[in-house]
Design a protein around this nucleic acid. Structure first.
Length: 250
DNA sequence: CCAGACGTTGTT
DNA sequence: GTCTGG
DNA sequence: CCAGACGTTGTT
DNA sequence: GTCTGG
């Protein structure tokens, strides 16, 4: 699954804009070591003018038909790729409201017998990963496949929110969890953001696990367990954040 | 027809 | 909005 | 996803 | 154990 991730773009958004064909305002490049449900996250979607634009959505989908009391919860942070086309809550969104959730990598926890033994691992693109093909290994960013919706409170501003699509794990992730976020290969991004595209079979065909070898992993500090810690700048020292440990390699 | 639900995850 | 159950 | 809270009464 | 908040 994907319940926590990182967004660590380079400070200069120029290549990011090129990588995701972003028009209009540049994407937010504030580094986020520890993105949690309900946080504002950087996304890319196709607007009415058919231009790919960067935006900030709330992570945790609030469907447009939600009641106010339900909308105060964290919402749907994940959606299963295998059943998107059938589930009433997601079917319409698969056809009409697809987006990219920009990310650098995601966390999974290895569970022990106590809370102290929840050990986090960080999964991110390997060198020469197909996920960064086309010369974009340097931006530090890839695209999770996402869906979004718009919710109007009885009084107040519209809330745009999103969910991250999950699929079965590849060989690297499988030892830790039985789900992983869909990370779109560069050649799938155009299809995913094409508003003319409404073929569920074609759309779901790109929602595959990352290729074997596309990711690398390392153990990181348990500081990431708490959403209050958002990286080296807040509480965890960089060397601790990056501390090594178990080799989960294939 | 209307009413009511609509999700994922891990753990046992 | 759209589907399921009654 | 993990962390942290989880409650009522009467009295000060 | 289970829910809420982040």
């Amino acid at each position: 699954m994907c319940g926590r991730y990182a967004y660590l773009p380079t400070a200069d958004p120029t290549e990011l804009i090129e990588q995701f064909s972003i028009h209009g305002d540049p994407p937010d490049v504030t580094p986020r070591y520890n993105v949690a449900p309900t946080d504002p996250v950087t996304v890319v979607h196709t607007n009415r003018e058919l231009q790919q634009t960067a935006a900030v959505f709330r992570w945790g989908l609030i469907p447009s038909w939600s009641k106010p009391e339900a909308a105060r919860r964290s919402g749907h942070i994940n959606a299963r790729a295998e059943t998107l086309a059938e589930k009433p809550a997601f079917r319409r969104l698969l056809l009409k409201r697809r987006c990219l959730v920009l990310a650098s990598g995601f966390y999974e926890w290895q569970h022990g017998s106590s809370r102290r033994e929840r050990m986090p691992y960080y999964f991110s693109p390997a060198a020469d990963s197909p996920l960064t093909a086309g010369g974009y290994a340097g931006t530090g960013v890839v695209a999770f496949a996402g869906l979004y919706d718009r919710w109007y409170p009885p009084d107040g501003d519209r809330i745009d929110s999103c969910t991250i699509i999950t699929t079965s794990p590849n060989g690297l992730v499988a030892p830790l969890h039985d789900r992983m976020p869909v990370m779109l290969a560069p050649d799938a991004i155009e299809l995913w953001l094409d508003r003319e595209m409404a073929d569920p079979m074609l759309l779901t065909s790109v929602l595959a696990p990352a290729a074997e070898g596309a990711l690398t992993t390392r153990r990181v500090s348990q500081a990431v367990n708490s959403v209050a810690n958002d990286g080296p700048g807040s509480q965890a020292p960089a060397e601790e954040w990056n501390q090594g440990g178990l080799d989960l390699g294939p």
